[in-house]
């Protein structure tokens, strides 16, 4: 068919990418002057080769996809698929849960990042300065991630320099662990620059009650709720007034007092006809 020629050239172009040697998407830009979004091969310091998605456009580009947090069942309570909290049940004897925020375990594939959890070696291997976050509807294919996203933003303060250069190192300093501290012991809250959405649209993604206790325009790390459960990331917001963070922060340790354990811990609190306003 007529398409065969173009398709072959396209695949040849992709094949050439496998000759690149770089540890991050930023290095691909700097060394090879490549500016096209898509999948690239990267190499760790130890020589492990893996494939991931590069966003080469946002704010000048060179953003490496290192992880995705996907909710396979909002009704699950630290069950199968809750890799970013615990797959071993809500258990105070496992305060770290699966521990994936601060270990070298990897899982999933870049192309499937909107259909299941994903974590690659870049998560702990890349020395980075900033973070970018995309909220992409489940099961959207890679070529539409950017357009389909309901929220996109990035940081510009180079804050990761202060915390060891990546989230792996940061969460060593601020463990995502039950009973590690009280709400006042949260990790850093960093101002964000919006690429899609704004403060108002961010607020509206969360329930009416959470809107009264957080400030939009930030990304917060290692939040702790009133019951001393730890959460990894409050995306787009900073808890300021009260600390029911289980309703708007994701990832976590292995135990939540009111059985709200999960990757999106208690985002669904009201859905089953309980109290109103948190969902």
């Amino acid at each position: 068919s007529l398409n065969l020629g173009t398709n072959f050239e396209h695949l040849e172009k992709l094949r050439n990418r496998s000759t690149y040697v770089a540890r991050s998407c930023k290095e691909i830009i700097d060394r090879y002057n490549e500016h096209e979004d898509g999948l690239y091969f990267l190499t760790t310091a130890n020589g492990m080769v893996y494939q991931t998605f590069c966003d080469m456009t946002t704010a000048g580009g060179g953003w490496t996809l290192v992880a995705s947090v996907h909710e396979n069942s909002i009704y699950g309570r630290c069950t199968v698929g809750d890799r970013w909290s615990s797959q071993q049940g809500n258990n105070a004897n496992l305060p770290d849960g699966d521990g994936n925020w601060s270990n070298r375990n990897t899982f999933g594939a870049a192309e499937g990042a909107t259909s299941d959890d994903f974590k690659n070696p870049g998560y702990y291997d890349i020395m980075a300065e900033d973070i970018s976050v995309w909220h992409v509807p489940n099961n959207v294919p890679l070529e539409h991630w950017n357009l389909a996203a309901i929220l996109r933003y990035h940081t510009e303060t180079h804050f990761l320099r202060l915390y060891g250069g990546n989230l792996f190192q940061m969460f060593m300093q601020y463990p995502v662990r039950y009973n590690v501290g009280s709400p006042g012991n949260r990790g850093p809250a960093i101002p964000i620059v919006y690429d899609h959405g704004d403060k108002e649209s961010t607020k509206n993604l969360y329930g009416p009650n959470p809107r009264g206790e957080f400030e939009p325009g930030f990304i917060t790390f290692r939040a702790i709720n009133n019951e001393r459960a730890a959460m990894a990331i409050c995306s787009g917001v900073k808890p300021v007034r009260a600390y029911n963070t289980e309703h708007y922060c994701i990832g976590g340790g292995g135990y939540f007092l009111t059985d709200q354990c999960g990757d999106f811990p208690s985002f669904d609190w009201d859905r089953l006809g309980r109290e109103q306003g948190w969902s």
Partner: peptide
Amino acid sequence: ASKEMTEAAVLLFYR
């Protein structure tokens, strides 16, 4: 949180 939010994956990037 909104259904929009719970039915979206959170993608994390480094630079």
